[in-house]
């Protein structure tokens, strides 16, 4: 990411220049949705809810059926070549100008940041990667900054805890967008939980390679969420939800995290508004 490919491999690296605030485009007519593999299998309704939220904003959603995984599992496990092959297959699907919306900070971060590193020695591919990175958005960020949604809450008053994934927070810089969306819901009171910015302990293969440490982290996260006084838990990342919900269920707790897209749609759908009236 921080080395032009013309430099030798042993050149001293400096950190990339400081990024200013992201400049957002006008609302487009069409977007691509990258569903992510974990959502595909475990939270498909959250993907559909994301599609409906976007459609409600008058945007046509394109879901290329050839998409699979962003490549992150292999990438973080050190299998770079395998990650590159899978990334290359995804790159081919999202050509043109439409924004790529991803309902996960971690997969969005893969497209926006790590593909650059994967393809830095392929100048032609890198040009495509850079262009795609420019138009890759995490869902909450896209709804708030590009669609400029105005949500009208139709649900009953409720306290909600928001868990923001580490990649949404640190790679995508979108941790305030989820908060901003929840703040639009008049019946929702967002409550903080203990060590809110701390990782839930998922970390992909980390959760199975280091089960004791990962388990300690997710138990602490579950305890913090339970102790927050929130009746509902929301997150914009399915991997964190898989981890946190699995822990809550194992502990016999009734609390479950819900994807932000599902929560927002549920609170603002006509049925919810009708129910409230």
């Amino acid at each position: 990411m921080n080395r032009p490919s013309s430099q030798p491999a042993n050149a001293t690296r400096v950190a990339p220049p400081l990024e200013g605030p992201r400049v957002y485009p006008a609302r487009p007519s069409d977007v691509y949705l990258f569903g992510t593999c974990v959502l595909d299998v475990f939270f498909p309704s959250a993907g559909m809810d994301a599609i409906r939220l976007l459609e409600r904003e008058g945007i046509r959603v394109h879901f290329p059926q050839a998409q699979s995984c962003c490549g992150q599992p292999a990438y973080t496990s050190g299998y770079t070549e395998e990650a590159r092959a899978v990334a290359r297959a995804q790159l081919a699907l999202f050509a043109g100008e439409w924004p790529l919306v991803v309902p996960s900070g971690s997969c969005a971060g893969m497209f926006r940041h790590h593909y650059r590193e994967l393809f830095r020695d392929e100048p032609e591919t890198l040009a495509l990667v850079e262009a795609l990175a420019e138009r890759t958005f995490e869902l909450a960020e896209f709804l708030f900054e590009v669609c400029k949604v105005r949500l009208e809450d139709g649900g009953a008053p409720v306290k909600v805890a928001l868990h923001t994934s580490c990649s949404a927070r640190r790679e995508m810089g979108t941790h305030l967008h989820g908060r901003a969306l929840l703040a639009q819901l008049s019946g929702v009171e967002r409550v903080d939980h203990d060590h809110e910015s701390e990782c839930c302990g998922f970390g992909g293969s980390f959760s199975v390679r280091m089960p004791d440490i990962s388990g300690a982290m997710v138990r602490d996260k579950a305890a913090a969420l339970k102790g927050s006084g929130a009746a509902e838990v929301v997150s914009a990342d399915c991997c964190c939800l898989l981890n946190i919900n699995g822990c809550l269920e194992k502990q016999g707790d009734a609390l479950r995290g819900e994807h932000l897209a599902s929560f927002l749609l549920r609170r603002t759908s006509a049925a919810a508004r009708g129910g409230a009236k």
Binding site: L33, P44, G47, M48, I51, H62, S207, C247, K250
Partner: peptide
């Protein structure tokens, strides 16, 4: 080791690929 601290994840009844194809057509 996943289930030492968590219950096993349950796949949904149908994938997003299927749901999206129904809703948006085969893209």
């Amino acid at each position: 080791p996943w289930t030492d601290h968590r219950s096993a994840p349950k796949p949904a009844a149908r994938t997003l690929h299927e749901l999206a194809r129904e809703h948006l057509g085969d893209q």
